[in-house]
Design a protein around this nucleic acid. Sequence first.
DNA 1: AACTCACGCAACCGCAGATGC
DNA 2: CGCATCTGCGGTTGCGTGAGT
Length: 246
Amino acid sequence: MFSSKDQVLPSYDPTQNHNTLISLSLSLSLTSVITITNQDSRMVRTPCCRAEGLKKGAWTQEEDHKLIAYVQLHGEGGWRTLPDKAGLRRCGKSCRLRWANYLRPDIKRGEFSEEEEDSIIRLHAIHGNKWSAIARRLPGRTDNEIKNHWNTHIKKRLVKKGIDPLTHKSLNGKSSDHTETPPDKSSVHQDDDDQKSNKNNALGSLSARFLNRVANRFDFLMLDESCLENTSFMRELTRILQEDYV
DNA sequence: AACTCACGCAACCGCAGATGC
DNA sequence: CGCATCTGCGGTTGCGTGAGT
């Protein structure tokens, strides 16, 4: 049931938030709509790496060794303070990423098998671009790796086969219900403008990120592919959001 | 051999949600 | 309860490399 990621990261249990998620009302989604659409009022956050002189770019062997040694000794977590303690001139975020995507001992390197690719396609049909959710179900593969593989290989292959990688339906235009079709990522910024100028169209042009968040909140309900086919579910969701938003 | 282009992948960035105080 | 900080996630960028000319 648990992926290797969960085993390696005992402090992180993706299932533990479900009760919290259940209690979240759709008004939270409304908040998300407003946040997404109002790019101009985007909150300014302090950069994660305030200190100057922090190294960026490719990691050296020495840095890798330091990070591995530290994590093996102290475990994961405390990424903010880890660089200082481990003697690394790196941002904590960068350390976490390096560990999670490259240094973790359980990471499976090398080409994706056919079975793995099939799983990715199937899981993408259910979860969309929720790479971490997909990664949890593919032991040894990281979300970053899966995301890269999807974008560089699988997506192209599906298009070649005449399958829309976003909807997983035929590109021949058989699908007529666009309410369940996530928007193309390239249209996200344009969509934001549309939403500002036309409130009624807001729901039809939400960003993929927002849809993913909504999907995430319903993750515990969407346990199989039938949910994807369940257009009434999507219509109901749209209706609820519309009621909240308008 | 030199140059350009396309591709793949590691790493970065900015945000949202979780958590701590 | 509200604010600040930390962590995780998805989108994006940019560098290295190999193929093509």
